[in-house]
Structure formats: C-alpha cells, structure tokens
Write a protein that binds this DNA or RNA. Structure first.
Lengths: 192, 192, 192, 192
DNA sequence: GATGAATGAGTGTTCATTCAT
DNA sequence: CATGAATGAACACTCATTCAT
C-alpha cells in the first residue's frame, strides 16, 4: 500500500469528518469546531489546510464530484452502442449512490445551498465530458433526439438521481428490475 | 366576537420576508433577527406568530407547497386525454417556477435541508392526488407503462423541475419550443 | 360564605400562581408571562394589581409572612407559663411549614435574594411582637437568660425552621418525638 | 494577554467575579455577560473554563464550601474536651463569616436557590466529618444529649450562622461577649 | 506544522413592560 | 377593568477565526 504523506492524510481526514458531520447533523449545525473534533485535530489546524470554512466546504464538494465522475464513467467504452453506454452509466449511478449515501447526500445539500454558486458549473461538468461527446455523436447519427444537452440530461441524469435518492431514503426499492425498467423509460425518452 | 386579534397580514409579511431572505442570502445565514428586520418587526414579534424558527421555516414551506399544488393543477380536467392533462401540468409547472422563482428556490433549499424530515411526505403530496389518480387510470388502460408511481414521477415531475431550475438560473432557456420538446421526451418515456 | 369582590379574588389568584411557580421552578425562571398563564390572566392584568414584578414578589412575601405570623401565634395565651407558650409556638411552626411547604419555600428563597432588602425588618417582625413581649418578661423574671433578643431568636426560631426545612426535604423526619426532643434543646439553651 | 496556557489564575478570576457580582447585585441579575465584564474576559472565555453557567455557579459554591470547611476546622484537635472543640469551631465560624461576607452570602443565596439540588449533600458535608465524629463520641460518652445529628446541628451550626449573618448585616453586633454568650446557649442546648 | 486559548459578533429565544382597544 | 399584541433589551450560548506558543 502506498503511504500518502502525513499532510495529505490529514487533509483527507478533515474532509471525511466534514462529510460525516454534514451527513449526520446537517449543514447549518456543522461548525468548524465540531468538524475538527470529529477529525481529531484542532480547529486551528483546519485553517492550515483550508483558507476558511467556505473553502473547506467547496473543496469537499469538488472532490466528491470528482470521485463520483470517475465512478459513473467506470467501464466507459465509447466504441459500444450508445444504449449500452448509457445503461452502464445508469447502473453505475444507482450503485454509487447506494454505496456512498453520505457523500451523495452532502453533494445534494451543497448544490442546493448558496455555496453552490461558488463552484463554476464547468469545473464539475468536465468529469462527464466523455458522456457528453457520445451523446452528441448520437444526435448526429439520429440515434437520439436532436434536443439540447440540458434536456437529455434531465431525462438521463436526473431521473436516475432522484430514484436513487428515494432508494437511499427507503421510499422506493431500486432492485435490479426497477433499475432496468426505469432505464427503459429514460431510453424511450431520448431515443430518436 | 369575530375580532381578528393576530394580524394575518403581519404573518404573511413575516413569511414573505423569510422567503425573500432565504432566496437572496441562503438558508444558513437567514437568522431570525434578519428576517425580522426585513419584515419590519421586532425579532420578538416573530415568536408571537410562530413557536420558534423551525415552525416558521416549516410553515413557510408547507404554504408554498399548497400554493404550488394549486397552481400546477390549474385547469385540471380529468375528462381530457391523459397526454393533454400532463402537458397542461408541464406547462403550468414551468410557468409557476419561472414566475415564482423565490418561492420555488426556497422550497428546493428546504427539501434538501435537515428540516425536510419534519414534514411528512403525505402532507405535501396530497395536493397532487388528482394527478396520481389519472396516472393510475392511464396504467390500467394501457396508455402508459405499468411501472411504479415513483418511476413515472421521476420522468414527469422532476425533469420539468430541473429544466425550470436551469431556466431560472439562466443556464437554459425554457421557451415555448423547448417546453414542448421536453414534454415530448417525458411522454415518450412513459407512454405504453 | 362571604363573597369577596372580584378584584380581590383575582389578586389572590395571581399571588397563588406566583407562589406555585416559584416553588416549582425557582425564582429566576418565574417570568411574569408564566405567572399570568398559571393565574389564567393576561400579563397586562398583573400590572393592574401590582406596579411591577418587584412589587408582586414583595407583596407575595409580606402576605406570606402575615399568614405565617398568624399561624405561629395560634392559641397564643400570654397567661400560660413561658415554656408552654414557646412549646406551642414550636409545634405550630413545624406544623405550618410542613402543611405549607410551597409558601414557606417561597419565603426562604425570597429572604435570601436581593429583593429581601426591599422589605423593612419591622414590617415582618411586628407579627411576632406578642412573642417578643413574653420573652422580655421572661428575661425580667429570670426565667430565661438575659441575652439580646437576636440570640434568643437564634435558638428558638431558627432551629425550628431549619429542622422543618429538613423535614420538608425528607432529610430528617420531624415526628412527634423529634419535635419534642428538639424543643427540649431549645428550652435548655435559653432557660436561666 | 500574553499567557496562552489554560490559566488557573483566570479561572479563579472568573470565580471571584461571580462571587462579587452575586454578592453585590444578587443571583438573578448576575448574567454571564456581566460576570465576564467584571472578570475582564469575553463571555465566550467563560465557556472555555466552565461547560455552562450552571457549572460555573456550582463550582463556585463547591469551592467556597471547601475553603469554609477548612477554615471552620482550623485548630481542630480531637483530643481536647468536646466543649472546647465546639467553642473553637463557633469562634472560627463567626470569624470566617465576618471576614468573608461576600463568599458566605454567595453560599447562602446558592443553597436557597434551585441550583442547590444539583450539589449532593455529601459532597459538601464531608468537609465537616471530623466534627461529626467527635459529636458522636460525645453522645456515646453521655457528654451531650442522645439526639439525631440533625438536631445537634440545628443548635450548634445554624445559630452561629444566623447570628453571623445578622452581624454582617449590622442587625446585631457579634462582639467577643456576644459570641461567648451565644455559645453558652448552644452548649446548654446540647449538653447532657 | 500544529495547537488550544481567546474573542467579537452573532445565534435563537425570553424578558418585563407598554399600549391601543 | 382587562386584554393580547408588540417590542427593545437582555438572556445563555456558539460561531468562525486568530494568534502566541
């Protein structure tokens, strides 16, 4: 195992503590002092790794999005049929969210908070660029409908996210069958 | 003895101030003192109309959802074809959100905050019950796919919401054409 | 039964509420609003009967001391032997305190608070004047020791009070035997 | 402000300020903010040294009782005659109270407040254990009356306290003669 | 690099009191 | 006479952040 240097380990520990605390007690009540305690460091130490609380929260969000991007594009293979690519993406998404509920919930809270405006959309979207490319190709090849990317995204990204969220909250069971069923709807929505 | 002691107008003013402040400066930084100032009352006055901050925020949310429910079901007519009913709903939604961005943004922030768990889902969902009924009828008549309500909702409610949100943030323009285009995707997703 | 006029009844109700609340929740947390609620009147009403909170608390104290004075001097008969007079007083005291713990506790809290200095000692002491007279006569007749009144009081009033207080707190059982025993000590202390 | 380690002196200063303020303006009006000002620290600093106001008040009380216990048992010598031991105790008590009126008044206010119930009796009583032992021996040796400890205490502790209190309030002068006289009454009360 | 003590400014909430009705 | 709405000031307490060590 690669031993990361001491500093990086501590930084990660602070981020882990941030996610845990926000996930458990919410955004508003996650003070720097409590995050520090959860991370077993002094509050002052946090200010060595992050300029201020805002930067801590933003960095945490960006790192989550990075990890999430990598996970959702696992097994990405642009040579396969578009439907298969999207289906893999859909399954990856459901799996990631159900396996990383804390991290995911943090990102949802964050992106609905005023902090969200501090992160430029591109900084986060670029992780999904490969997907964007194949979608565009699909449009050109008349495999999927000729509509703006945002519309496609509203039927391929967000329904998966909302269903996974329900799954995490036990409001709905995303078993194999329901994942498949729901992907069928997504594909029917966008296919030419 | 019909003397209205407490002033309904003042209560509404406090709620208006709450929405405005949350909309402008975010959830976390909307303190009771600031809300009071925006509403031109003393902080103590707020506690005459609401037991505590939590109740203020929850009441505000519930009232918004009420209004929203009424607006989205405007011109609801269960005798019309299902596609028309849903299309009207889709247009109503986009219009409501673009006309009531502040109120809508409040509800989004609220439902992603830990306060959300204080509101029972049914208390909010019941405003949409008529829609639920026609969806069930559509399933029985094989007009739309036989999938759980949650899945339908993920393709009929949420894409509209997310697209309207983008519209509100000027990330995407929901003009007449795009509303129509996107509804087509929604209908293609769920139709049998 | 004599019907007191409405006003006086309300005044008594406010005082009753004050005693109850202070007895149950302490001095500091007994706000005017809570007293008003307990008395089933509006906070504003209290200010009709009492100039301010201070006057309410002081009046309550003085009235308690009045009642207490009357109770402790019940069956007072200056023609009986001094020892019998004091013994009756002692028994009356124990009985009053055990029967009126709330009222008594109020008076103890009050007299150890800074409010106490608002009540002139004489205003309270005068209820015990008959006792003072017989004590003085006892000194002249060489039945009890020739020491200042305050010293006598420290051995005849206060031990009874402190033992009754322990009784009320269940720290000590003031049964018939212990009342008698302890009075014997008091008498031995002061007798010539 | 150059000392950075947790400062015992600062803790003591906060306690001193607490006693002074309570002594001067009473229990109820001694807010954390005022105590902080008197101690020349920020209100927030108090919460570094004490978990909350309650703990500050209780700690202050317990420390006072410690000091008081030590002072009252000064020159305690169990080999001397019981009467002498108690007489020394009596004199020590009067002296301590007259020299430490502020501290003593604090303890009286505290023990008549609802905070009192937060301190277990034993935690405070144990400082007086040696005295308790010699009193028990006195009972066995038929030097003093065979009555419960509480009764003895009501005639040996409390009259001294009440007389000292009067002395502090200038209601009564506890000069050498009066101390001696009053002790005689105490001894007459308990002696066999 | 890491710390814990320190703090001014803020938090949500309650206070005693007033006043129009 | 009696009220409930209204409030500025205060409450206990926590905050994000700094700083000497």
């Amino acid at each position: 195992m690669v031993v990361r240097n001491k500093d990086e380990a501590k930084r990660e520990e602070i981020i882990r503590a941030t996610v845990k605390l926000v996930n458990e007690t919410g955004f508003a009540s996650s003070s720097v002092a409590k995050i520090a305690e959860e991370a077993n460091v002094s509050p002052a130490t946090i200010y060595i790794y992050f300029k201020n609380k805002e930067e801590l929260l933003v960095s945490t969000y960006v790192e989550i999005k990075q990890v999430m991007g990598r996970s959702l594009l696992k097994d990405f293979d642009e040579t396969r049929p578009l439907r298969d690519i999207l289906r893999t993406f859909w399954f990856n998404g459901v799996e990631f969210i159900s396996r990383n509920q804390d991290v995911f919930q943090y990102s949802e809270q964050f992106s609905n908070s005023p902090y969200a405006s501090l992160v430029k959309a591109e900084e986060v979207d670029r992780y999904f660029e490969p997907l964007l490319k194949v979608l565009n190709r699909g449009k050109e090849q008349k495999i999927i409908k000729e509509v703006p990317f945002e519309v496609l995204s509203a039927f391929v990204f967000h329904p998966m996210i909302i269903l996974s969220k329900m799954n995490a909250h036990d409001d709905f069971k995303m078993d194999q069958e329901n994942i498949d069923r729901s992907f069928t709807l997504a594909w029917d929505a966008i296919k030419f």
